[in-house]
Computed example of a mutant assay.
Amino acid sequence: MDERTAAKPDQAVVGSPRRSPSQQRSRERVERMLAAASALIAERGSDAMRMGEVAERAGVSIGSLYQFFPDKRAIIWALAERYTAESQACISAALKDVRDVEGF
């Protein structure tokens, strides 16, 4: 492994949000940010998404966006966690009555 592919010590925190919203107004703002990012990713892909575009589409300042998400990876990570949780809930609901292979 060379230095470009070596694991970085802070890699575990890369992609995680800076802080979680505690007030309802902040939670709504974060929801707008994530919805804006999701729409931009759907339109043009994650590589083309820019933090300024997310802030503009969400109707928040760039500072407000960075207050919750330090970088683009953090937004993508939050969306991935959300979609994973939704998928798991959907699968669990669909399989809640399955007790054995025959019931599957």
Rank of each mutant, 00 (worst) to 15 (best):
Q88M: 12
G15C: 04
S87Q: 03
F68M: 05
V101D: 14
A94E: 10
Q67S: 15
S20Y: 01
S64W: 07
A55M: 04
A93Q: 10
E43L: 12
E31N: 13
P21R: 01
E53C: 06
A7I: 09
A35Q: 09
P17I: 09
E3L: 15
A74F: 12
R99I: 07
R25G: 11
I76N: 03
M1L: 13
G63C: 08
E28Q: 14
R29Y: 04
D47Q: 11
I75C: 08
A74Y: 08
R57C: 06
A48M: 10
G103A: 10
A58T: 01
I75M: 12
M49Q: 06
T84D: 13
A12C: 08
D10C: 11
D97P: 00
A94L: 13
S26T: 07
G15T: 01
C90I: 02
K72V: 08
S22V: 08
T5Y: 09
P70C: 04
R73F: 11
R44C: 08
Q24Y: 00
S16H: 02
G52M: 00
T5M: 11
R27E: 08
A7L: 12
A39Y: 00
V30S: 05
I41G: 05
K8P: 00
C90N: 00
Q24N: 05
Y66T: 03
R19F: 01
I91Y: 11
A80F: 08
I41D: 06
R29E: 14
S92I: 00
E86S: 04
R27K: 15
R82N: 04
I62P: 09
A6I: 08
A93I: 02
A6F: 08
E43K: 14
R73Y: 09
M49I: 02
R99S: 13
V14G: 04
T5I: 07
K72C: 05
S61H: 09
A85R: 10
A80N: 11
I75A: 09
R99A: 15
R44M: 08
A42Q: 05
L79D: 00
P9W: 02
R50S: 09
Q23H: 11
S22G: 07
E56F: 02
R82Y: 05
D100S: 12
K72G: 05
I76L: 14
M51W: 11
R25S: 14
V30G: 06
M51S: 14
M1C: 11
G45F: 04
A37D: 01
Q24F: 02
R27P: 01
E86P: 00
R73Q: 14
V98W: 07
G15Q: 03
I75G: 05
R50E: 11
S64A: 15
G103Y: 03
A6H: 03
P9N: 02
L34A: 06
